[in-house]
Amino acid sequence: MEKDIIISLNGINKTFGNRHILKNISLDIYKGETFVIMGCSGSGKSTLLRTITGAIKPDTGKLHIKNKNILELNNHEFDKIRRDFGMLFQYSALLDSLTIEENVALPIREHTKLADEIIKIIVKLKLSLTGLKNFEHHHPSEISGGMRKRVGLARAIALDPDIVFYDEPTSGLDPIVAAVIDKLIKDLSKKLLITSVVVTHDMQSVFKIADRIAMIHQGEVIAIGTPSEIQKSNNALVQQFINGQVQGPIDFFKNTELFKI
């Protein structure tokens, strides 16, 4: 059975100054799958994610989301597509001035005309999906990092999006909270039939949640496949990365690119 493509990248290139960050990236992401983009720090995976979400415009290439070339859309048209997105940021990016409830309610208040009582019910529901109760009136600075991630996740799914992007969802969390976040990503994808695009270099997380994995190295896709295909890959770069070895083709001490963002 042929799978529906929801995001399609074709020949995406991006340079910052004289640094070629994304080199001719082409890949398809299917509807309903959890697609993980992994790679070393500085490999270009976060730039790739920001390119897909529209925060960065590529120099060349085509980017289709739900069969629309988003690079040809004006801001208003692109905003319509963005309403079907949700994104969990690396540091949650909750608005400090708002309470937890107001943060989760923000996209609903801005894009719907629902009554306040209904919005409050939706917020409670979304927060309970991520396992948070009785924290609605706290501010983001009053809760822990793991809780902030869960609030960020509740906000990301507030408008029942088709696609949720995750930028390093488990970084900076203890192993138990990281496992909770992984489970949430998996559960939400199944329960809400969401397509998930996850950028991470947390290998434990990658093999737990991924339906398919793409590995990026120095701005290029060097491997793409299911977790078992990646684990069996003959590519030395992939093997060094997934096994976390110091010795290998990626010479950390020689390759100064790795220190750059």
């Binding site: 994104m87 990016a93 906000r155």
Partner: peptide, 25 residues
């Protein structure tokens, strides 16, 4: 200071991703 902190802590990008215009908001 407030908008600057929001910019460097990705809060502005978060607004844009939620299709909320930062200038309007």
């Amino acid at each position: 200071a407030e908008l600057g902190t929001m910019k460097v802590s990705e809060q502005i990008e978060a607004l844009e991703t939620m299709a909320i215009n930062p200038v309007k908001f």
